Amino acid sequence: MTISFVNRRQDPRGRRIIITGASGTIGRSLGERLSRAGARVMGLDLRPSGDEPFPVLGCDVTDPASVTSAVADALAELGGLDILVNNAGIGGPAPAEYAPGDEVHRQLEINLLGTWRVTAACVDALVAARGRVVMVTSRMAVMQLPLAAAYGASKRAMVAYADALRLELGTHVSVSCVYPSAVRSPIHDSTKAAGLSLEGMSVYEPLHGVVEAIIQTALATRPRRDVTTTRKGAVEFFLARHLPALTDRIVARTLAARAAAGAFDGAALAAGVVKRHRNRP
């Protein structure tokens, strides 16, 4: 389940790689590492900053025409594709008790359907090269946290998509999922602004460890199906998969403590959670 760092890697030199969300915290660091190692990296991002240390093309993963055009340009530049890293993703406040609105649709559209669109556009090139797909999912794909239902649902659905893709393309293309916990990045800003920060429920992990796990997965001679990024993450993954009722109790107890401590006071979207915890029998 966890990465074996003694697993041999393929030589990155000359490997043709596309990374989505390439201008963000993880994508930029990943692309820089791989480029320095000699890989040929093309990034896709909605808003390239222009100062990335590797080429990044503008691409809106919610727009099929934009995906088709950007992927075609990237493949033409690379001359094929060995590795696709589906890293693009967003988070945001989305309690499960409320009807899905724009925020929920946005997260599903980017995290799930955006991944699907880009992958579909790359399938022929990946099959031709007997390549690899790496899905940067989340620990929340297996262990949901409260007040962020859309993110967990989109990431769990992303894993389901990866499973289907593996069954369909597995004769020619390997498909792996990487499950990081939280990394400090702007992805958490909207949740924090809404007063729904999950600090105290999810522990931040170092960026370099997540990037290393993705690189190991992308280049491993024997790629793993599911890859966690820390020892703690491996334990959480195991418990969530095999003892889900136990993880539910742990998360629920932590939420109760956070609510009692006033962590969500004043947050409109958490009003129901706060009220129910204060009126518990």
Rank of each mutant, 00 (worst) to 15 (best):
F5P: 11
F5Y: 15
N7F: 04
R8T: 15
Q10H: 12
D11V: 10
P12L: 02
G14I: 03
G14S: 08
R15E: 12
R16L: 03
I17E: 04
T20S: 11
G21A: 09
A22C: 12
S23E: 07
G24R: 01
I26V: 14
R28C: 11
R28E: 14
S29F: 03
R33K: 12
L34D: 12
A37C: 01
R40L: 15
V41T: 09
M42K: 04
S49L: 14
G50Q: 07
F54N: 07
L57M: 07
C59H: 05
S66H: 04
V67N: 05
V67I: 00
T68S: 11
S69I: 00
A70Q: 04
A76F: 00
E77R: 15
L78Q: 07
G79Y: 05
G79M: 04
N86I: 06
G89P: 09
G89N: 08
G91R: 01
G92C: 06
P95L: 01
Y98S: 13
R106H: 08
R106M: 05
R106C: 03
Q107V: 09
L108G: 11
I110K: 00
R117F: 05
A121D: 07
D124R: 09
A125F: 03
A125D: 10
L126Y: 04
V127I: 13
A129L: 10
G131R: 01
M135L: 13
M135C: 14
T137F: 02
T137E: 15
S138A: 09
M140E: 15
A141V: 11
Q144C: 02
Q144L: 13
A148G: 08
A150V: 11
G152Q: 13
S154N: 10
K155E: 10
A157D: 14
M158N: 11
A160G: 15
A164M: 15
E168I: 01
T171Q: 14
H172R: 15
V173H: 05
V173Y: 09
V178A: 06
A182C: 00
A182D: 08
S185P: 07
S185V: 06
I187F: 02
H188S: 02
S190V: 02
T191I: 04
A194L: 00
G195R: 00
G195S: 00
L196C: 03
S197M: 00
Y204L: 00
L207C: 06
L207I: 06
G209Y: 00
V211K: 04
A213T: 06
A213V: 12
I214H: 02
T217P: 10
T217Q: 08
L219G: 05
L219H: 07
T221F: 00
R222E: 14
R225Q: 14
D226M: 05
D226V: 04
V227K: 05
R231G: 14
G233L: 04
F238M: 12
L239Q: 13
A240L: 12
L243I: 12
P244H: 07
A245T: 13
L246H: 06
L246V: 15
T247N: 07
A256M: 12
R258K: 14
A259S: 14
A259Q: 03
A260G: 07
A261N: 04
A267R: 06
L269Q: 15
L269E: 15
L269I: 05
V273L: 14
V273N: 00
V274Y: 05
R276T: 02
R278V: 01
N279L: 13
R280S: 13
